[in-house]
Design a protein around this nucleic acid. Structure first.
Length: 466
RNA sequence: GCCGGGGUGCCCGAGCGGACCAAGGGGACGGGCUUGAGACCCGUUCCCCCUCACGGGGGGCGCGGGUUCGAAUCCCGCCCCCGGCGCCA
């Protein structure tokens, strides 16, 4: 068994092209690859025959005793070698071209993934009772009723303060202005209660996932090019990845990548699957493709902490486990009491590696929008193929590739923004979700039930505004 | 970072320039034998290409180059492991 995409393209190119169309990509990529692959195979056959001839002669030289005979054979071998060298050069070029095209091929797409681009993603489930400011009622309907869901909600007459202003000017527990000076935009300082909240969220997710048997991991925060380019597509690479200057190392943009790499070029026996991991790590992202979106606050930043779910599974189980991952995320957000919806992401907006992706979007009362908190992807054998993660089935010792899946459990800064907007009272006090209490309890200085606005920031420069 | 030793197939381990193209074990898988299990016997056990198949061929000895008709074996660069020195949260 080889890679499913390669199999399909050789067996039924037209079918694969339909998937490219569904992804809104140029289907000619498949033709191009097919043609190069065919040439590569043919040339390899020719080359192998030639090498065989050369090997036969070469071996006979060792046995030939007569010096004259030897000289004649060596001359013959040399002649073949010259021809081989010419073809080998061509083969190398072809192989490189093939490899490059092969690695551009996206995964197929599951049947129940909606066609189209970003606007075509469809909400499939709603949870919670969102607080909707009167002025956002229309927008709210457009994000719920339009899809045939009647979502119970509470209408409020006061407009909640946005998470960015809450953090910086109401609570005064964050400073993105100074961070901008010393590191650049999309960096932040957070203080006191927000830091406790950050770590409490991580602990909450770690606790939840490990009680379900997921293995807790801290992975390397940097990876070699060889590894990182195998687990992500080029677009993500360009937009997200920081490089360490002068070294072959890249900062991870998510724990997903080092977790996937844990079994790179290894065999996993079917009896050991599924392998369920929960990783904790900082994430570093350039956000190069983001333009001016979410420039304020800590919603979209260059660094944050994340607890990540990652599973290696049997091919026949990956669909089921994909549902399990998004369910785990739902449980976490239900525990936090944050209203959300689950969105089935449209094909045009899927990453190259995923056959299907669910986002969990939390309701943000100050923006009147559902915003992405969690993303759960089924990559089937796309990553496994590129990382050489083999599946060995004990019965008959059949070899294939495992399936990999990943999902956010909690991304702390984003979740904090959702808490700041959803748990905000009119007087600016933020209530802390009850489930976090036990992760704050052990610490004297940590807040327990509420985060109160400060008169002035606990540290850092503060210019009293006029 | 420096000096020394080392990286061989799923595992152990031989080979250090040409002998059917990694010996020999072990494990695993398939089959035989057996009432069943074990022992025992036979076969298979990295990747790629050709073939409906039987089968055939090529490439693989940490990774990438090079020398040679021929390299696991020689040369160069890199990575990793072990020991010693140095440095350090």
């Amino acid at each position: 068994m080889s890679w499913s995409v390669l199999d399909l393209i050789r067996r039924d190119k037209e079918k694969y092209k339909m998937y490219l169309v569904k992804r809104q990509m140029d289907p000619s990529l498949a033709d191009k690859f097919y043609e190069v692959d065919l040439r590569w195979r043919k040339l390899q056959t020719v080359l192998n025959e030639l090498r065989h001839k050369h090997n036969v002669i070469s071996r006979s030289i060792g046995k030939a005793k007569d010096p004259e005979e030897r000289r004649r054979l060596i001359e013959e071998a040399r002649r073949l070698l010259r021809e081989l060298q010419r073809l080998e050069e061509e083969f190398k070029r072809l192989e490189e071209e093939r490899r490059s095209l092969l690695f551009q091929l996206p995964n197929i797409v599951d049947d129940d993934v909606p066609e189209g681009g970003e606007e075509d993603s469809v909400p499939v489930e709603f949870w919670g009772r969102p607080r909707v400011w009167r002025g956002y009622l229309e927008e709210f309907k457009a994000q719920t009723e339009r899809y045939g869901f009647r979502v119970d909600h509470e209408v409020i007459d006061w407009k909640p303060v946005g998470h960015a202003d809450m953090l910086e000017y109401v609570l005064k527990l964050g400073n993105t202005v100074k961070a901008g000076e010393v590191a650049g935009s999309r960096f932040y300082y957070t203080f006191e209660d927000i830091v406790w909240l950050d770590f409490a969220l991580l602990l909450y997710a770690m606790d939840h996932m490990t009680s379900k048997g997921y293995v807790l991991v801290t992975p390397p925060y940097m990876l070699r090019h060889k590894i990182i380019s195998a687990v992500i597509d080029l677009e993500t690479f360009k937009d997200a990845i920081y490089k360490i200057e002068g070294e072959d190392l890249y900062l991870i943009s998510t724990a997903e990548h080092p977790l996937a790499a844990l079994y790179s070029w290894e065999e996993i026996y079917d009896e050991d699957l599924p392998i369920k991991l929960v990783g904790v790590s900082p994430c570093f992202r350039k956000e190069a493709g983001a333009g001016n979106r979410d420039l304020k606050g800590i919603f979209r930043v260059h660094q944050f902490h994340k607890v990540e779910q990652f599973v290696f599974s049997l091919p026949e189980e990956s669909r089921k486990i994909h549902e399990e991952l998004i369910t785990n995320a739902k449980e976490l957000f239900q525990g936090l009491g944050l209203p959300y919806r689950i969105v089935n992401i449209a094909a045009g907006d899927l990453g190259a590696c995923a056959v299907k992706k669910y986002d969990l979007e939390a309701w943000m009362p100050a923006q009147g929008k559902y915003r992405e908190m969690v993303s759960a992807s089924n990559c089937t054998d796309w990553q496994a193929y590129r990382l050489g993660i083999r599946l060995v089935r004990r019965k008959g010792m059949e070899r294939g590739y495992v399936h990999t899946l990943n999902s956010t459990a909690i991304a702390s800064t984003r979740t904090i923004t959702a808490i700041l907007e959803n748990y905000q009272r009119e007087d600016g006090v933020v209530e802390i979700p009850k489930v976090l209490r036990k992760y704050l309890e052990p610490f004297k200085a940590a807040p327990k039930d509420y985060i109160y606005p400060r008169e002035k920031p606990p540290a850092g420069p503060w210019k009293r505004s006029s």
